[in-house]
Design a protein around this nucleic acid. Structure first.
Lengths: 256, 256
DNA sequence: CGCGGAATTGAAAATACTCAAAATTAGTGG
DNA sequence: CCACTAATTTTGAGTATTTTCAATTCCGCG
């Protein structure tokens, strides 16, 4: 585990007083400070509220809660989900270190979804009002913020493509390829990683049942694309996996 | 048809010289200028590039094209779509007057999708670089822009819910309710409107085949929720339609 | 008036779901 | 550290919703 900080499960630590420092954060090349000058990073540091530990299964925020902060993930993983009219979840994303949470709340000043930690995690609290003030003084920051929001829009468009156009095996392959890419961008292995979410969460996100996900795992294993041990996944044949995701595989339901 | 301007299909009109004026635009309560003071609107007017007519089936922009402008729809309708690895479309949205196009291009400086007019339409060209310059001087504008981007994020999250969680009849009902709401916000009838897109486009957007859409139209008609004449739809029973969308209907496949 | 794209409808097929049971894993307390 | 329990995951069999394929009808448009 090469995470920035080891998790210390002691509530006695005064995290509010521990100001987050962007310059020393291992995620600053992926996060909000990307491309800022040193003095600009310092100004950003000054407005950041502090760090917040979020234990596994704990909620970072919930729907309808007033919006005050954006959250940058320092380490750990989260899921965000909406709840439909019948009270069922729909997971809209899995977020990892360096990614920003809460942008969907800007439009209504209230959170539009729930965010729950998939493992013990830590975030930076970024008071949005103060960030907006800073935008007027640090144009580079503003431009990068727009890029991040835009990136979130394109990410969601890609999920729409996945849900609207792909068959179950394509969806699941695309999901694994996506995780692989994101871990690679963070300096982790692109071929071997742990799934931080349950099969149920994966199925929910991909618009499939838990049984379908389990069957696809077994099938990909049998086909020799991947190895699976509990939640540890090893991608053996990335090319084939991408081909499945693209739908350019020859034998869609092939059992050997 | 109560559109701001009648369509004049003459290419001889010099639209580039016709500066768009936000203050006189009927969409200014839905569009970028919302909440601005008169003098601020004037500053926005000054940077707006001009109007552009886009004929039915014509492309406003296409994927990978360099990003220069956002586009505000003055009148007409558009669809945006991505193309998957096999060259198939996935429609990611239908846009109407007062809505902003092109925000997904900010992250990469290139357009991430294609935008095509569903009917003869007109847009304002908003040079993004100049808009960014203006943000520094008009904080209200910046704040509203962030709300619009955030709104796009939540819109897409709602589509993810639709595609990931809903059955065919729910999706189609939710689609009609969504159109109804948006027309109401524009001062048009919420119960009677024309579908500007083909059945194929609807199916594509909803992750369904054209045949399924056609069958659902027939079923809703038979159930007495709606009346349909070609592309004209009248919602007879909005409550039932919303119940179908919510999945709280008693008899899901009921034929009477 | 007739051609061609778009839409509707029907029947057969397939993908993914539901229900059910078994197996495995994780969590808890002794 | 082990044993027990609860939760998660896997696997199987049958079902259902939606798709595919095909034929027909409907309109718009030249």
């Amino acid at each position: 585990m090469s995470q920035p900080l080891p998790y210390v499960p002691q509530s006695s630590i005064n995290l509010g007083a521990l100001k987050a420092s962007c310059s020393s954060c291992s995620m600053h090349q992926l996060c909000l400070p990307l491309g800022l000058e040193d003095n600009e990073i310092n100004r950003l540091d000054q407005i950041i509220g502090g760090r917040r530990r979020v234990a596994k299964d704990e909620r970072l925020y919930k729907v309808d809660q007033p919006f005050r902060n954006l959250y940058a993930i320092r380490f750990g993983h989260f899921k965000t989900y909406q709840v439909n009219a019948r009270g069922e979840e729909q997971i809209t994303g899995f977020q990892m270190a360096g990614e920003l949470l809460g942008m969907d709340a800007i439009s209504s000043d209230h959170h539009h979804c729930d965010a729950v930690a998939l493992e013990d995690s830590e975030v930076c609290e970024i008071p949005f009002e103060r960030l907006e003030d800073l935008f007027g003084h640090v144009p580079t920051l503003l431009r990068h913020f727009h890029r991040i929001m835009s990136q979130e829009i394109t990410r969601e468009q890609n999920v729409m493509l996945l849900l609207g156009n792909m068959r179950a095996d394509q969806r699941f392959a695309a999901f694994l390829v996506n995780l692989s890419t994101r871990y690679a961008a963070r300096g982790y292995s692109s071929t071997s990683f742990a799934l931080r979410m349950s099969r149920e969460d994966i199925g929910n996100y991909l618009g499939l049942t838990i049984e379908s996900v389990s069957r696809l795992l077994s099938r990909f294993k049998k086909q020799g694309c991947i190895k699976v041990d509990k939640r540890e996944v090893t991608i053996i044949d990335p090319v084939q996996l991408k081909a499945i995701a693209a739908g350019t595989e020859s034998c869609p339901g092939g059992s050997d």
